[in-house]
Amino acid sequence: MRGQLHLWVAQRLTAAFLAVAVAVHLVTIIIAVRGGLSAADILARTRGSEAWLLFYAGFALAAGLHAAIGLRAIAAEWLGWRGRGLDLLWLGLGLATALFGIRAAWGLYHA
């Protein structure tokens, strides 16, 4: 039951972070598009920037975990999928999703 409590806490914390992060992400996209920045311009800004790497790595980790915990609840309520094995599967799925995002953030940093 402590594990379930911690999943719930993790989902709330990632939600709080994502509320800010999604706003920053969207505003950044709009500024980049409307400002007419090219891919090269964007890469020039993200390359070697620890701040952007940290922000997007955190974003990807939060999004991956948040989504997986949410899907776990939906699967439990609608499909009756419950149990420790499935919990580990959801956690793995969340971390795998996060890893894709973190790899992309690393790509922008390292490009």
């Binding site: 039951m1 402590r2 409590l5």
Partner: peptide
Amino acid sequence: LAAVSGDAGCHS
């Protein structure tokens, strides 16, 4: 608090 926590408790 332990008894009311988790999927069968308040967190659902």
